[in-house]
Every structure is written in structure tokens, then in C-alpha cells.
Design a protein around this nucleic acid. Structure first.
Lengths: 123, 123
DNA sequence: CCTCGATATTTCCCGATGGATATAACGCTT
DNA sequence: AAGCGTTATATCCATCGGGAAATATCGAGG
């Protein structure tokens, strides 16, 4: 999304509605929030503005029945954000979906790679 | 891409390099080219400009060892474009990849859908 | 040899996307 | 009560991706 060097082979997006979807970007953001306990820190880690990070969180919290991220203002450390149970479930399910789908389609992916001009490293 | 009503559930993109990827848009374009025998007609059918359609074709032809689309200018009907053998293979492989991956991840997709605010129609 | 329809290519321009910035609210700590 | 770091929210603005349109080219057919 920001760094062109990290070329992920396999990108999967679930589109539920016009403005409702779940993809690699949101999943990674959830992971960083879980690790850092902060929306801004997570955004920084991904090289994205706080505005964008917050927008993604806001979208996710709106599209799922239960919010995925619970945030708080003030307090000892100024505030923070944590993944809810639903957030952890969604993250785990999405990662599992990615792994499963990638594994299942490995054969087709391999055949497509073999047809490229620049030969990808054969693992 | 243009029509918000056709909400595809499952979007899959293979990213090979910085500017080299294969996704649902290019696949659909290939299908329309195969059906219409024309880049412009294919673009029109998808509601995209000829410029964009041509750019996508150009990108695909460059990233694969053998061009996927062979186009010709002039002639009885002004010209046209057809899928090469490689084009048909790539299209078929990508569609197969989508089907396989979607089927393999169906369980995870279902679980995620159940957590949405707006209940999706049960199949 | 002129027309026709599609490909090929360039230029111009608008609108949307997202970053930068500013401000406010919040609640624990000191 | 002041300070701090974060969340929350709005405004401004540069950038850029893509559409529109204009132009050139090609080759069979009339």
C-alpha cells in the first residue's frame, strides 16, 4: 500500500457492500493495533496518516455488528485502543481465509507465474 | 468497479510486482474482448474508457511472456482484437483460481458474513 | 483512391483521494 | 490545576488517476 518493495503475492478482498469490505490493509491495521495498543501508533507503523487509520477503524466498527476496536481517550497514557473479542475473531478468520485460499489455489498461481516475462524465484 | 449494485463477494488479486498484477477487472476485460472481438467494445461493455481498456491490455501483454491479446488495425471492419492461446489459458487459470480459492475459504467467508451488521441473504 | 471503423497515442482538465494541519475533548498523573 | 499523549473531527489543499476529446494510422472493400 505504501512500500512498493513488499510485493504481496496474494491479495484477497471480501466486498460485502458498496462501502463495506475487508482486505489485507484493514487486517494488517488490526494486527498493529493489537501489538501497539494505539490507532496512531499502528498507522505510523504502516506509514499511513492517523486520519486514514481512524477512518479504516471507523468503517470496520460500523460494518460489523460488534465493534472490532475499542478506543479510549485520556488516562495515564493519553488513551489507546484494543481489539475486542470480535476484532480478534475477524482478524483470525480473515488470516485463515487467506491461508486457506492461497493454499488451495497454489497450483493455479504457480501456472500463472510460469507464464510471466520476468521469472519469479522458484521458491 | 462502476456499478455499485454488482457487489462481488470475493475479489482476488495476484500481485507479481510493483506495476504487475492480475485481478478481476483484467479478467473480465479479457472475457469481453473474447466475446466482442474488440478492445473498445469490451471497454464500453464495462463502462470504461477506451484509454483505460487499452492500458490494461498493454500492461497484460507486457507482463506475460506471450501477449494475451493480439490486435490489428485497418481491414474490413476497421480492426479488432482477439485472445491468443496464452490469453485463453491465463483467463481460464485465473477463473479456476478464483473458484478454487472461494470454495476453499467458503467456511471462513460464511463466518465473517454472520458477524456483519446487515444480514446478507443466506446464499 | 477514398471511405470506414477500429486501434494507437497525445494533450487537456476535472474531480476525488488522502495528507497535512489545526483544534478540541478526555482522563490519569503529578 | 496544569501537563501530557491519545482519540476525535473539521478544514484546506496538492496531487494524481482517469475521462474526454482530438489526431494519426492502418487495411480491406467499394
Amino acid at each position: 500500500m505504501s512500500d512498493p518493495t513488499d510485493s504481496p503475492r496474494f491479495r484477497l478482498r471480501l466486498v460485502f457492500g458498496p462501502d463495506e469490505w475487508m482486505g489485507p490493509g484493514k487486517a494488517e491495521l488490526l494486527e498493529h493495533i493489537e501489538q501497539t495498543g494505539s490507532i496512531s501508533a499502528a498507522g505510523r507503523a504502516m506509514g499511513m496518516s492517523y486520519k486514514r487509520a481512524w477512518q479504516l477503524v471507523d468503517t470496520m466498527n460500523a460494518m460489523f455488528r460488534t465493534p472490532l476496536v475499542q478506543s479510549s481517550r485520556g488516562g495515564a497514557k493519553g488513551g489507546g485502543a484494543v481489539l475486542t473479542d470480535a476484532g480478534q475473531v475477524v482478524l483470525a478468520e480473515f488470516r485463515a481465509l487467506e491461508d486457506t485460499a492461497r493454499a488451495a489455489g497454489a497450483k493455479h498461481i504457480e501456472r500463472l507465474q510460469e507464464m510471466l516475462t520476468d521469472i519469479p524465484d522458484g521458491k
